[in-house]
Amino acid sequence: MFEGAIQDLIDELGRLPGIGPKSAQRLAFHLLQADDADVARLVSALQRVKELVRFCATCFNVAESEECRICRDPRRSDESICVVEEPKDVVAIERTGEFRGRYHVLGGAINPLEGVGPDNLRIRELMARLASGEIKELILATDPNTEGEATATYLALLVKPMGIAVTRLASGLPVGGDLEYADEITLGRAFEGRRAV
């Protein structure tokens, strides 16, 4: 244990995800020895992120104004919405450059063990968007795990009666890899989901 301020800093850093006690200590001493200007920049970045960043009123992605960059973009199609769990999933899909529609960020997935039900997610807001009648396709891009699949099924059951096409991202083999290095679960699923060529 250290005294006062330095221990406070270690404790605060240690509460961050992915940071253990050792890393927290290393970071704290790094900051202690860093230039005042560097530390000031970090402090202001921390403050600004809380002051300026908020959630888009439409899709709940991170934004710096009322609406996020994607919702403001007039070149994007209003006909399809891609549903993801977290803002970082939006970034991942944007990197592909394949999708030109809009997003909707749920803020998680249905997870009874963690006490997360549909009411804790932005599902009501999604339904309001779909009610406008402009949307033709809903793409479910929740994580391919138990909770993500359950969320996708739940949304599909809700949305299909509205006459909107609902699709789910495929799961399968990574591109550019060798078949022999795929683990048996991924390969097994890819086998099940094979298609005619």
């Binding site: 997870n111 359950a150 679960i185």
Partner: peptide, 24 residues
């Protein structure tokens, strides 16, 4: 058939989640 390692793990996870929901 090693594929069943995944089937088994998925089933157990779903069961856990469903039990949590029922318990709440």
């Amino acid at each position: 058939q090693p594929r069943y390692a995944g089937v088994r793990a998925d089933y157990e996870r779903i069961l856990k989640q469903r039990n949590a929901l029922l318990r709440t």
